[in-house]
């Protein structure tokens, strides 16, 4: 077995294969130009596009996170405010309740006093009237009694005047 064919340039021809070189260059450059146009260009385009998409999506996500944080903060503030307002309302209501209780009590007290006074006044009048009635009764009884005792018909008017004077003296003593 001969190994001569392993020797470099053993094809038996002399000189460089210039056409091979030219063909290599031609095919390679053709391939590169074609692929740049139909394959690498579009592929690079879509990869760049994807990069941009991802970047914009990240930016959008960041934005919306900021937005939601802002909203959350706003809601928290609102809640705090609402709580303060509610506390104030409760406080107010309590105060108002206290005030109206005071008022009701005052009104009730004055009403009671008024009622008591009017009752006292009524009692007084009733007493006066009762005393007047009793006095009259006593007078007529006394007149009757006196007339019965004396059996003597003196003038009714004199009698009465006398007796009334007597009773008025007695009433003053009272």
């Amino acid at each position: 077995m001969s190994f001569d064919y392993l020797v470099l340039g053993a094809s038996g021809q002399d000189g460089l294969n210039i056409w091979d070189s030219l063909a290599t260059l031609f095919f390679f450059i053709l391939l590169m130009a074609l692929l740049k146009k139909v394959a690498w260009g579009p592929l690079m385009g879509i990869m760049t596009q994807r990069e941009e998409l991802i970047a914009s999506e990240i930016a959008a996500a960041e934005n919306s996170r900021g937005e939601s944080e802002r909203l959350l903060e706003e809601q928290r503030d609102l809640l705090k405010e609402a709580r303060t307002v509610a506390l104030a309302i409760v406080e107010n209501a309590k105060k108002q309740g206290d005030a109206s209780r005071e008022e009701i009590i005052t009104i009730a007290r004055s009403e009671a006093i008024r009622l008591k006074e009017s009752a006292i006044r009524e009692i007084d009048t009733e007493k006066e009237r009762a005393i007047a009635a009793v006095r009259e009764e006593v007078v007529s009884l006394s007149v009757l009694a006196a007339s019965k005792v004396l059996e003597k018909e003196i003038s009714e008017e004199d009698n009465r005047a006398l007796i009334e004077a007597t009773i008025a003296k007695a009433g003053e003593v009272n």
Partner: peptide, 30 residues
């Protein structure tokens, strides 16, 4: 100038295969 048909043939085949792989792979990009 000298040349070798088999080299030129194989270069053409290589170019064709690479082109087809790249061309088919980059159709319908998503």
């Amino acid at each position: 100038m000298y040349g070798n048909w088999s080299n030129i043939l194989m270069l053409a085949v290589t170019t064709l295969i690479v082109f087809l792989i790249a061309f088919i792979a980059t159709r319908n990009l998503k």
